[in-house]
Write a protein that binds this DNA or RNA. Structure first.
Length: 787
DNA sequence: CCATCCACGTTTTTT
DNA sequence: ACGTGGATGG
């Protein structure tokens, strides 16, 4: 493979490294993914390593997907044999084959955090621990921490002896683990922990995987916790061809067990390890890098390194002060719009970053008001929504009746008149006989004291038994269709006829699209396969590069991403750094916040804007804050002098005087035209040409919809309330009209019959070739116009 | 058994 | 401010 001119000296050295342990300390933007992918390609092409013998591990599905793509491109034929996946997915794959060696069944279900919490609640009731004294959340994090440190319930109990509080936790931990086992379920931590247990207890299984994975590469190594480290260590033990890439300055997950020591002490574990530092940054301008270096250099206990770049200095960094968070949001949205209007940037070039999810609210409001397309990453996960969890519980029950939690979740959803008393009786009956809750239901006639519920139980069990009978011959889609029909789930929602019910229906439709997507892409689609995939997806994974919208997310979610324009917002003492990080007196917590700041700054390629507000609402209270200490740590010479001190006021005034956006005066103007003001604006400035957004911009002015600012605001407020992520704004307009041919992921092609303005969205009526007329919401249906 | 009301607790997040 | 979950009364 010819690497000439593609890599710098250090990168090349890392790529060409032969056998043995290798630690790559890769600063932000130094091309670590490039090094990893080229290294894989090099191993295959130049060293004759079989792709089959390579394992590449990442933390997120998105990172895995990206690496997969790049490896496939680079390494060409055979590349698909390389195992590229997340820690958790890797473990699931191994456990599905071998977990029977340690007593579980291979069709185990995976519990998410919500499931774990419910289980903890149940368990606390069982063992008589008061959840008012011992909160589920803290119990769960104690248990999770124990699992990450590979402390078994028995060992935990031993260590806890004498400490009443710890003894209670130990009791819960033990019972929790037992119940998981009975439910044939694993929580997220178990996936790692059980794999390590499997390796330790069955040397032949370990030997198989050691032999299989002769070359192991781990990305984001600074985020590994103790179990993950142990997992990697065991796998690599035989051939010692372990290559890890990480940046101790970007370790931001200590709170969930990431052990920064893993990277700092790699050389201790592998004294013969080769260490390569990548310090040349290819992402950001000189000023942005200086800011990042300035901030991070305040941390102690880090590996010394200094990012440098050959790139130009770039623009100075505006540091803007606002009286309120409201104005901060207004300014930023206006700034984005004017930069887009200038024609030099598109919406997708901007990211608004903040410390906590709650801060997204104000930005969302302003973006909606101005008709700017945006996407919020994070917040409530799609798969964490009630209706979705309900339906998945139905599917889980069909797939694996041993999951008591899933069964109990839906036994009375929709309402069947099965209450706590009945459930307790069944639990008791099943407990005595050592059978699962669902098996108990099947024998309901034998259970005394629940005669009145007999019919209800039958009406719950029947649809599930029917579905089971068909599970092998039916697609997942057909199975779920039948289940929601027979169980009356959708009927209940239809009858409710509220906005909320409508929203849920849309989410259910979305779930069907996901199922359709799965069944198309999977090699051998199956119910278990679908449930497994769904259990391991996150929200960041849904970030699509080809969509044109402003992205909003927490600093944590932003790691690994880059944007031409970044706004680092809410830079206030108490917000960022979070008050919790200095209330606890552990200086390590503050250092983690500082790393977070470093991560935020280094996301920016061309322009970075730092903002803070003197006043903002937090938890219903007005809070006044001082500027963040991190702002002081940014070297003065890279800050935009004109923007400092009073400069920001000037800018703001200038901006507003120039017509800005969003203020009542502007709305009055646009409203008057009766058509759509913002559309006129965007049209004039060549917005549609630049953005590549099709769409009749004539529809795009949200302001044009109503003349009255307040009414308009109310309408959009309700859209915010629903919590639905408006990936495609109504305000963006539709790319199709009545009579056009369109296609839909699930229903295929059809003809648009009608488009009605449904308030916060368009309701589109389409006559599909395959299944007739359907009504759907435009923002959700993602209809594509057929050429 | 179910609907309604009040109190509580709110970082960050993957999987 | 806001949603969740437990207690309470019908």
């Amino acid at each position: 493979m010819n690497l000439q001119g593609i890599l710098n000296k250090e990168q090349e050295e890392a790529v060409l490294h032969g056998e043995g342990p290798l630690l790559i300390l890769a600063g932000a933007g130094s091309g670590k993914t490039r090094v990893l992918t080229y290294r894989i390609a090099h191993l295959i092409a130049d060293r004759g390593v079989s792709p089959w013998n390579i394992l590449a591990i990442t933390f997120t599905n998105k990172a895995a997907g990206e690496m997969r793509e790049r490896v496939d491109q680079l390494a060409g034929f055979g590349a698909e044999q390389v195992w590229v996946s997340t820690f958790h997915a890797t473990c699931v794959r191994i456990l599905r084959r071998h977990i029977d060696c340690i007593g579980y069944q291979t069709n185990f279900t995976i519990y998410d955090t919500d499931d774990s919490k419910s289980l903890i609640r149940d368990v606390c009731r069982q063992v008589g621990v008061d959840t008012k004294v011992y909160k589920e959340r803290s119990l769960l994090s104690a248990i999770s921490a124990a699992k990450n440190e590979m402390i078994t319930p028995e060992q935990f109990a031993r260590d806890a002896a004498g400490d009443y509080g710890q003894e209670q936790v130990a009791k819960v931990y033990q019972a929790y683990q037992q119940q998981l086992y009975r439910n044939n379920a694993l929580d997220f931590d178990d996936l790692l922990q059980k794999t390590v247990e499997l390796f330790s207890r069955t040397p032949e299984v370990l030997a198989y995987y050691q032999e299989r994975f002769r070359y192991i590469l781990v990305d984001e190594y600074q985020d590994t916790n103790t179990v993950q480290f142990e997992f990697v260590r065991l796998l690599a033990d035989r051939y010692r061809n372990l290559c890890v890439v990480g940046d101790d300055d970007q370790s931001i997950y200590k709170f969930r067990g990431a052990n920064i020591e893993n990277i700092l002490s790699f050389e201790r574990h592998y004294p013969d390890a080769k260490v390569i530092k990548l310090e040349q940054n290819y992402r950001s301008t000189g000023n942005i890098l200086k800011a990042a270096n300035g901030v991070i250099s305040n941390n102690r206990g880090r590996k010394e390194k200094r990012l440098w770049t050959e790139a130009e200095e770039g623009k100075k960094i505006p540091l803007l002060q606002f009286d309120s968070a409201y104005q901060e949001a207004e300014y930023i949205v206006g700034d984005i719009r004017s930069k887009v209007r200038s024609g030099f940037y598109e919406y997708r070039d901007f990211a608004i970053l903040y410390r906590t999810n709650a801060q997204s609210r104000l930005f969302e409001e302003k973006l909606l008001l101005s008709g700017t397309p945006y996407k919020i990453i994070g917040g409530v996960n799609f798969y964490a929504r009630k209706e979705i969890k309900d339906l998945l519980a139905y599917l889980k029950t069909v797939d694996n009746g041993q999951d008591d939690l899933a069964v109990k979740r839906i036994i009375n959803v929709p309402r069947r008149g099965i209450g706590n008393t009945t459930i307790a009786r069944i639990e008791e009956y099943a407990g005595e006989r050592g059978i699962s809750f669902y098996e108990g239901l099947l024998q309901a006639e034998n259970i005394p004291g629940i005669s009145r519920a007999q019919n209800s139980i039958r009406s719950f069990v029947k649809p599930i038994q029917d579905a089971r009978a068909k599970a092998d011959s039916c697609s997942v889609k057909e199975l779920l269709e039948k289940l929601i029909e027979d169980s009356g789930y959708v009927r209940e929602l239809e009858e409710a006829d509220t906005d909320e019910a409508k929203n849920r229906m849309e989410n259910i439709d979305e779930l069907f699209s996901k199922i359709a997507g799965y069944e198309e892409s999977a090699q051998e689609p199956s119910l278990s396969g679908f449930l497994q995939e769904v259990a391991l997806v996150a929200d960041v994974d849904s970030l699509e590069n080809d969509q044109n919208y402003v992205v909003l997310m927490t600093l944590h979610s932003a790691k690994g991403l880059e944007f031409p324009n970044v706004y680092l917002t809410g830079m206030e003492e108490g917000v960022f750094p979070s008050y919790l990080s200095f209330a606890m007196e552990d200086p390590a917590d503050l250092e983690e916040e500082r790393r977070l700041c470093y991560v935020g700054i280094t996301r920016a390629k061309r322009e970075l804007t730092l903002t803070w507000a003197k006043m903002r609402m937090q938890r219903g209270e007005t809070q006044y804050s001082m500027p963040s200490r991190f702002l002081r740590e940014v070297p003065k010479e890279v800050l935009d002098g004109a923007a400092g001190e009073r400069g920001d006021q000037k800018r703001l005034e200038g901006f507003l005087a120039a017509g800005g956006f969003g203020q009542p005066a502007v709305f009055g103007q646009t409203g008057r035209t009766g058509q759509s003001g913002a559309a006129g604006q965007t049209g004039r400035t060549g917005f549609s040409g630049v953005s590549g957004q099709t769409g009749r911009t004539g529809q795009s002015g949200a302001a044009g919809q109503t003349g009255r600012n307040s009414r308009f605001q109310g309408k959009y407020q309700s859209a915010i309330m629903t919590g639905k992520q408006m990936q495609v704004n109504k305000a963006e307009g539709l790319s199709y009209g009545v009579g056009d041919r369109v296609s839909h992921v699930k229903f295929g092609q059809g003809t648009v019959m009608n488009i009605a303005d449904g308030g916060k969205d368009y309701e589109v009526q389409v006559n599909f070739d395959s299944c007739g007329v359907k009504k759907m919401f435009a923002s959700f249906a993602k209809l594509k116009k057929c050429p």
